[in-house]
Amino acid sequence: MIPVVIAVIFLVYGIMHMTPGDPVAVMLGADATPELIQETREALGITDPFLVQFANYVKNLFTGHFGTSWYTGRDVSERLFAAIPYTIKLSLLAMLVALVLSIPMGVLAAVKHNSLGDYTISIFAMIGVSAPTFWVGTMLMLLCSLGWGILPSAYDGTWKSYVLPTITQGFNMLASVTRTQRSSMLEVLSADYIRTARAKGVSNFSATYKHALRNAIIPSITVAGLNFGTLIGGAVAIETVFAIPGVGRLMIDSIKLHDTPTVIGCMVFVSVMVSVINLLVDLLYALIDPRIKAQYLKGGKK
């Protein structure tokens, strides 16, 4: 995980370094004199060569310092740690809603293959995969806040203000997991061992939900795990539209200001989160599928 994070930092640092734009010009405003601009650049250490800046940053990171924001002059961790709970809460809620709804919908579509229900779910999933997140968010806001007046349009600290962002953020994952679950379920339901189980007198319910679902759910978990990274990335749009002060919004604000230390702080958080989720997904495989657990154990003995 550490090499992955360092590689991410290197890439982001490189990209921010190459991006045209002068953070000092933003910090000092239009009245700044060329001398003051140069003095400030030197004070921030951005006149150093790229590799020196990068090495200094990584060294500080290992001592727990994310650096000082070039724009606010405050410790990056202060703002970052204030933002992290919002993003985690939103992403977990979105994931929870998406998984709770998508697995039954995918199973239902597969079991009722080629029925009206299957078509409806498939069309819904297709829209979910295609619709841009910010568009879904704006439409929901226009409908539920401006039209019906039942939910707040922006984050106000109440549970109500999490409803629209959660639906918006979970919509895409809900759709893609539903599609995956449906196709995976269809494949498993036509497998020989399910037919054998039914021939041996196992009930339809038991064959579907006890035998087939257990095997068919693994691809959905993979998709959900991979999508979690997208969820965190998608937080940039959601948090901006619904004014949630999370990491996504912090990142976009910092990119606009060329505040490299804050951008990298956000990226470190995102990369660590994605790595941790990938690890959890791997562990979950073993929990669900005894064959994978056996492989892990065998690998461990070697």
Partner: peptide, 10 residues
């Protein structure tokens, strides 16, 4: 603090 113009208006 509402960065999105449409949200501010709504």
């Amino acid at each position: 603090i509402i960065p999105e113009g449409t949200t501010r208006t709504i």
